[in-house]
Design a protein around this nucleic acid. Structure first.
Length: 961
RNA sequence: GCGGGAGUGGCCGAGCUGGCCAAAGGCGCGGGACUUAAGAUCCCGUCCUUAGUGGUUCAAGGGUUCGAAUCCCUUCUCCCGCACCA
């Protein structure tokens, strides 16, 4: 059965568009449902993993659509930042890797030439996302509302949003430290290296500058570990460096020439005073901060004038470099000679143990050096050694009693406390530096510069945090763990630098257009803009008209319509319409995004809604989805094989197979390893369903409806309830299990049992195909048509379950038959005899009476073994069965209370004799044996092995011979 | 280290407001049907034992309970976040 999924998909997608199913319009009075996935950044091609979350949203939206909601599912893209610039630059440069990447993903050669400017790149990918991913996957999104963060109308919206944040007092300015080139100004330091030619992985690090008094001046050491000051025993100077004297707030500081330059970018009023050779300082005594001890200055070659200040305080106990260098000094008589150091002085320098940590002795630095076999200063392994000790010390360390008031404190805490204490005492200052050399495209070194007027969004605001946190309690946030955890995330969220200087694509900051609003901050409130973008895209309004007043009116319902109309030139009717749209669709019902959003996007999304919109417009739901990963939880990557471009996968497996795979392969809240074989099994599942439906259609007959029909209809109505229940929790996986497995199995069982009634088949098919629509819409349409139903299933309404059609008894009866069959099989297997005939004995009536009594007693809440036994013994019909009766009473009295009385009812109310008798032929066909059914109560029955007495309700006795 | 999550049968994964759990479903595997070829479909089986029973399981070890995969404690292992990066 070769099904051409590709053309089938295209066919139905076209039909949906023809029918306008992808267009969402306000219908006053009809309940609405608005859903989005967090839009992706358009910096390149996506892979099959990304479609997981998007597919959830389409399936959920389709489900809502068929259960009475007017659905709005808009899509857009995020292009802020410098991804577009970077790619355009690489193409302009003719970078082969980039071009190869594009070609491999199906970019036509002719297109590549056009991608030399950033906006073309963005537009190109916008088209790819919409056409090759989302439309290709059958999404019913309202394409007319598509928007991108770089569109001029979107920018107007973002500017409005920032005005509202400002009005709310949430925009603050304070100094910030950012990378900058002395020539070109601010630069972006990131792995794409758009602005820079070297150092894309560099990070900004905070150093503590420690001041060591020597006479009237200060030697300035930079350290990452201010908590180790109690272990300072000497001071390192590189004798080959010509240091600088600079003036700083009336003090004289000594630092490396490079540090002097860097400091000028971060501190005010720095002036160069002169130079001093490092060698001259050797042998000096200087006073260490915090501990106020005089320590000697020793020579060390590892002091890099480019790192920190080029001067280093020595804590040999916890710094491998210090330890090994101190050893060198002690061992090397030539040094002593050269710098005139006395043996006494050298001997006086003894490491002090200051930090206690598991797995290390008194001197962690020494332990690491020994472990790694480091012998000499300058050994490249020292870099790793340092990292190891720093990391372990920070996480596991505790200050020893040598550390004065900080003794016993965890390093993590002591670090901040000691740093602050020294700053307060004027013994230290902060300084920022990059972790590696960063070079601007112009060739100059990039350094960290202080920016005094940096804007932040004050997410640390207490009132905002509290209100947002409180609102989260009313939201539907999934999974549960995140719902609980989100409050912690909101608390932890601090001020966020929301604008940047330099070479970025994005919206200009409305209060100062030298700034560009950064990538997180312009993608928080945007869902509401989808209710407006429709009008901008259709040119009914133009960006210039989208003023503060305009948005105030349509979103906040503020201002006078006449005035807004005249100041913006927008027709009052249109203003009214947009305003109504906004308030009809908003709030957002579900925002679904990958787990990476939990600590950044979602909190910001929540904060911004609470900060700028009235409460009735705050979001109602967040759902987090986990990833599809490559082997061993790696990110999916081309280099490791496995994941082909999305259109290729769609062609190979079929879109519906992939959608079913995403929906069913695992819970939304776990990572899944991508496996083509697994996808293939879902493809087979889809194939099988095609087969099952056509078999079923072919089997239709005018046989009158019977017990099997009641059973199937009961099952399907039960399934409708299960589906609705699952989907109320957006549990697509559970829903898929019901639809693609349970319902399928029921259909198979129905046919196997000889069911073929046309009416039943129609009813069942209608429900089944509808239930497939959310996850496998193309298949559903095709089957809908094949089965001869009218219209589009995508536009149909899923019925409510009919409670009257649900028959516990019917479902119980079929289960009983299955149990009997499996018991027969079991016995045949174990007995190992060639059976010719099966005799089934149904339970004696008195046993059912025992159960009836038990149920009645349970209903009154007083079912106990003695009570039931007593009751049975007072009933003559039961009593005369003697010991068997009391044993059964005991068993029943123990077993029944585990269930509800209602659940047990079919056990004793089912007429097993007629049920099994009617299934005789079936059982006989299935087993290939003659089957007889006899009541244990019947007179003079055939029962050579005395089996009949073993029969109980729910468990007929079986004789095999 | 702090915060969060997880360890279930050959595998993936349900279950985890305690009892219908020897534990769904799928995959894989074995057998059969069909049929001649498909990564097809349909049945049956798939912890041990057994005329449909019983036994031992849900990382390890304790505990609570009449009763625990499910609750508590301890240990071991694994994963994620710790920011300015959508």
């Amino acid at each position: 059965m070769a099904i051409d999924y590709g053309s089938m998909e295209a066919k139905w997608q076209a039909r949906w568009a023809e029918a306008g199913l992808d267009k969402s319009e306000r219908i006053d009075g009809k309940p609405k449902f608005m859903s989005i996935f967090a839009y992706p950044g358009v910096t390149g091609y996506l892979h099959v993993g990304h479609l997981r979350g998007y597919t959830y949203v389409d399936a959920i939206s389709r489900y809502k659509r068929m259960t009475g909601y007017n659905v709005l599912f808009p899509v857009g893209t995020h292009a802020t930042g410098n991804g577009g610039i970077s790619l355009a630059n690489r193409i302009s440069r003719g970078d082969e890797k980039t071009i190869d990447y594009l070609v491999r993903n199906g970019c036509p050669e002719s297109k590549i030439a056009e991608l030399k400017d950033p906006m073309s790149v963005v537009e190109f990918f916008n088209q790819v996302y919409v056409n090759e991913y989302w439309k290709r996957f059958g999404f019913l999104a309202d394409w007319r509302r598509f928007t991108c963060t770089l569109y001029p109308d979107y920018s107007r919206f973002i500017q409005w949003q920032f005005r509202k944040l400002h009005d709310a007092g949430l925009l603050i300015q304070k100094p910030y430290y950012a990378p900058a080139c002395p020539n070109c100004g601010p630069v972006a330091v990131d792995p794409s290296e758009t602005d820079i030619s070297k150092g894309g992985r560099a990070e900004t690090q905070e150093y503590t500058l420690l001041k060591f008094r020597h006479g009237d001046e200060f030697l300035i050491a930079a350290t990452l570990r201010p908590e180790t000051v109690y272990g300072q025993v000497c001071f390192w100077v590189n004798p080959e460096v010509e240091y600088r004297r600079i003036s700083k707030d009336g003090e004289v500081w000594v630092v490396s020439p490079q540090a002097a330059e860097k400091l000028q970018l971060q501190k005010d009023g720095i002036e160069e005073l002169g130079t001093i050779p490092g060698s001259e300082m050797i042998g000096w005594m200087c006073e260490a901060p915090m501990i106020h001890r005089e320590i000697p200055v020793f020579p060390a070659t590892f002091c890099d004038p480019d790192v920190g200040t080029g001067l280093v305080t020595s804590v040999p106990s916890d710094a491998p470099d210090d330890w090994i260098s101190l050893e060198a000094v002690k061992r090397d008589p030539a040094l002593k000679e050269k710098y005139g150091l006395t043996q006494e002085l050298i001997d006086s320098v003894v490491p002090i143990s200051i930090i206690e940590m598991k797995g290390y002795g008194d001197f962690p630095a020494k332990d690491v050096i020994d472990r790694m076999g480091i012998k000499q200063p300058g050994d490249p392994k020292l870099v790793d050694a340092k990292k190891q000790v720093y990391k372990d010390g920070y996480h596991m360390g505790r200050m020893r009693e040598t550390c004065g008031p900080y003794a016993g404190m965890r390093v993590e805490e002591a670090k901040d406390r000691m740093k602050q204490a020294m700053i307060d005492a004027g013994e230290a200052e902060l300084f920022y530096d990059l972790t590696e050399e960063v070079v601007c495209r112009c060739g100059n070194r990039v350094h960290i510069r202080r920016i005094d007027d940096q804007w932040f969004i004050n997410y640390a605001d207490k009132d905002l945090t509290e209100r947002t946190s409180a609102h989260c309690r009313d939201m539907d946030i999934n999974p549960q763990e995140y719902s609980e955890n989100v409050h912690g995330v909101l608390d932890w969220f601090r001020e966020r630098a929301c604008v940047r200087l330099g070479n970025w694509l994005g919206t200009r900051f409305p209060y100062d257009d030298k700034w560009i609003i950064e990538a997180i901050s312009d993608s928080t409130l945007y869902p509401v803009y989808y209710t407006i973008s429709l009008y901008a895209n259709s040119k009914q309004i133009v960006p210039e008209q989208m003023t503060e007043e305009f948005f105030d009116y349509v979103i906040l319902d503020k201002g006078d319509i006449g005035q807004v109309a005249s100041s913006t030139g927008v027709d009052p009717g249109l203003l009214q319409k947009i305003r109504d749209d906004v308030h009809y669709w908003y709030p957002l019902d579900i925002n679904l995004g990958g787990k990476e959003h939990m600590t950044v996007h979602f909190p910001a999304f929540l904060f911004n809604h609470v900060a700028t919109l009235p409460e009735e417009m705050w979001p109602r739901g967040i759902t987090v989805n986990w990833y599809i990963t490559g082997k061993n939880s790696d990110k999916i990557s081309k280099s490791k094989g496995g994941a082909q471009p999305i259109p290729g996968a769609a062609a190979k497996f079929g879109v519906d197979a992939m959608r079913l795979y995403y929906a069913h392969v695992a819970s939304m809240f776990v990572d899944v390893e991508w496996s083509e074989d697994t996808v293939m099994t879902y493809r087979q599942r889809v194939d099988r369903i095609f087969g099952a439906v056509s078999d079923l259609v072919a089997s239709e007959s005018d046989t009158p409806a019977g017990a099997m029909d009641a059973w199937l209809i009961s099952r399907f109505n039960t399934h409708i309830n299960e589906i609705r229940e699952a989907m109320d929790k957006y549990d697509l996986r559970q829903m898929a299990t019901v639809v693609y497995f349970d319902m399928y199995n029921d259909i198979k069982w129905y046919s196997r049992r000889g069911g073929s009634n046309s009416g039943t088949v129609r009813d069942a098919l209608r429900i089944w195909i509808q239930a497939m629509m959310p996850i496998t819409p193309h298949t559903a349409e095709e089957l809908w048509e094949q089965a001869g139903f009218d219209g589009l299933v995508s536009a149909s309404e899923l019925p409510e379950a009919d409670p009257a059609a649900i028959s516990v008894v019917a479902e119980y009866g079929e289960n009983l038959i299955r149990d009997v069959m499996s018991d027969i099989t079991e016995i045949r297997k174990i007995a190992g005899i060639e059976a010719r005939r099966i005799v089934l004995y149904t339970s004696a009536e008195w046993k059912r009476d025992v159960m009836r009594k038990a149920a009645a007693m349970m209903a009154e809440g007083k079912l106990t073994v003695p009570d039931l036994t007593k009751a049975c013994m007072s009933d003559e019909a039961i009593k005369r069965n003697g010991k068997a009766a009391s044993e059964l009473a005991k068993k029943v009295a123990v077993e029944f209370p585990r269930f509800t009385a209602e659940a047990k009812r079919p056990v004793y109310e089912t007429d097993e004799l007629s049920l099994l008798t009617s299934a005789r032929q079936f059982l006989s066909d299935e087993t290939g044996l003659q089957v007889d059914v006899i009541s244990a109560d019947a007179e003079g029955i055939y029962d050579p092995q005395n089996k009949a007495r073993a029969a109980t309700p729910g468990r007929p006795a079986i004789l095999l011979e």
